[in-house]
Design a protein around this nucleic acid. Structure first.
Lengths: 229, 229
DNA sequence: TTTAATTAATAGTATTACTATCATAAATAA
DNA sequence: TTATTTATGATAGTAATACTATTAATTAAA
């Protein structure tokens, strides 16, 4: 028996569901590879079409534009991450251990879990680190939010926020802390690989130091309020 | 006697120094307004040229492309902020008060200080919140960093990092914490105005709550290590 | 006063981000 | 089986973007 991980993505993000067809899955697979390789700015539907031996118009039949494709991929990533977090924290009773697990998962590189053949989670993770914030740093963000395009991000913040509250019910900013964990994990990761002078992580133990930095930041903050509150 | 605030910007960021001429200053002033208004993606040199009654080629004589203009503006912002921080923390002996000042400055909206007639700092601040990360989230980041395009960001992280170390010399990640303060201040600000469900800040006291959240995060982390170390 | 250097104005090009149309092959329903 | 829907392919076309290049006009230096 095979458990297939299937993500539910907001229908407003695509014209035709890319998970349903061979071409659609090819679009997903190769867009992850190409955005990772070229960066979002230099990635075009024409280049993607050539790569998969299809046509530009063919890609446009699945996605209205590359921005919606980016939101699709970020949604996919956050949904997958939410599932993953629920999976690895399952049966963990200790509230601190649970949060530690989440921080480690976010701060460390992700391995392709091979549950989904058409998306390489490891590649998607590096893509997300560099590109995810572009999905909301736009003038359409409020409108996009009304269409619930960022729900997977909200879901994961609520989940992590609940973990935070379970550990300390008096902590005042669980969702802000949750979104902070995610964003800090991403941009400190980006900085340490690209502008290392903005961080203090040594070449050798980058990942473990990032985990330590984040854990320290999060726990000292939660625990301090626990004592006070 | 008038003290004119003058920023030194990396010469690789422009072709001709925009601060030196009337047209250049018009380009700076109106690009801040237009990027703020249209967003970086929809902002073009052609639209800018029309706005200032010049020509597209005229703008290109000052900046190679709009990405370099964005890095220029972020550099300008961080340089201005560094100056501002040094100014307001001058004569403050208490290490905690000094850091508190910095956090408040970063988390609260900025008022136009009218020292520079051609750049509205308040507008520039909202622009930075939404667009600054696009200046480094590119495939050219490593190359740009080699050209020292992000030095003002490094400078401000070193400055804040030194404040952190002054408060607690044993804290292990001063630069990461400094860049974290800056980035968290920016994206929590963006979230509370645009995707408020990712934060816990109420409509009424947003700014003060953001200051509280950030202060709590930073100080509990530094102080915890102080006890331990 | 001639020459050199700036700056302005105009035109032009390759690429991007699409839209539209028509042909064809494969799957499915009547 | 045939009819019909559905998916993809092939081609063309357009407006806007991101530039580059050329020439003309103006100003400054020798």
């Amino acid at each position: 028996m095979v458990f297939q991980f299937k993500v539910q993505i907001n229908e407003g993000l695509f014209i035709r569901n890319p998970e349903d067809t061979e071409l659609g899955r090819k679009i997903l697979k190769h867009s992850v590879q190409m955005i990772h390789q070229l960066g979002f700015e230099d990635f075009t539907f024409k280049k993607l079409a050539e790569e998969i031996h299809s046509t530009e118009a063919g890609v446009y039949r699945y996605f209205e534009n590359k921005h919606k494709l980016l939101i699709y991929l970020t949604s996919w990533y956050f949904s997958w991450l939410t599932f993953h977090i629920k999976f690895i924290t399952n049966n963990i009773e200790n509230n601190k251990d649970r949060l530690s697990k989440v921080i480690s998962l976010l701060a460390k590189p992700i391995e392709d879990d091979e549950q989904t053949s058409y998306i390489d989670e490891s590649l998607l993770h590096s893509l997300i680190v560099a590109e995810a914030s572009k999905s909301y740093l736009t003038k359409q963000v409020v409108e996009n939010n009304k269409q619930h395009f960022f729900k997977p991000y909200q879901d994961i913040c609520n989940l992590i926020g609940d973990f935070i509250l379970a550990y300390n019910p008096t902590y005042k900013y669980p969702k802000s802390l949750a979104s902070t964990i995610i964003e800090v994990a991403h941009f400190q990761n980006f900085f340490m690989h690209n502008i290392s002078s903005l961080t203090d992580f040594s070449k050798k133990k980058q990942e473990s130091q990032l985990v330590e930095f984040l854990s320290d930041l999060v726990f000292s903050s939660i625990e301090q309020r626990k004592d006070k509150g």
